[in-house]
């Protein structure tokens, strides 16, 4: 049934087909906007990215970013523009500085220290013929 319907649609509509147009008039710019805004946080509905949010403010900001990009601003300049107004909160990728050092390097430190401790314990564990509780 579904198949027949497909064929019917194919025949009936074929003559009028036109090419779909990209929504924005500059696809390259749209792609750049998309890539950039995927790492930015929408301030209104705080758990979506600026790229995915449908809030009016997000729409305004995307419009603003388009304008800035057309003016030839770099991605970093666009980010600076937003951070100057809304703070680091808009960045899903927090900047690396003193206060975020623990965030960025803590997990690796944990991995290294954990690996080191494990290695030492294993060595001790393997070396001891006579294993007792006191030897941890």
């Amino acid at each position: 049934m579904k198949k027949l319907w497909i064929i019917f649609l194919l025949i009936s509509n074929f003559a009028f087909a036109g090419e779909a147009k990209p929504l924005g008039d500059d696809p390259a710019l749209e792609l750049r906007l998309k890539t950039l805004s995927q790492d930015l946080r929408c301030l209104v509905c705080q758990n979506t990215t600026l790229a995915d949010s449908s809030a009016p403010l997000a729409e305004d900001l995307r419009q603003e970013i388009r304008k800035l990009m057309r003016e030839g601003k770099s991605d970093q300049e666009v980010i600076d523009y937003l951070v100057a107004r809304y703070g680091d909160f808009v960045l899903y990728k927090p900047p690396v500085n003193e206060s975020t050092a623990l965030l960025w390097f803590g997990p690796f430190l944990l991995l290294i220290v954990g690996g080191f401790v494990l290695f030492r314990v294993l060595k001790k564990h393997a070396g001891n013929e006579d294993i007792q509780a006191e030897d941890v």
């Binding site: 995927q38 790492d39 808009v90």
Partner: peptide
């Protein structure tokens, strides 16, 4: 206030 998201 900071956000930690997918890029991190």
């Amino acid at each position: 206030k900071i956000s930690v998201g997918p890029p991190y």
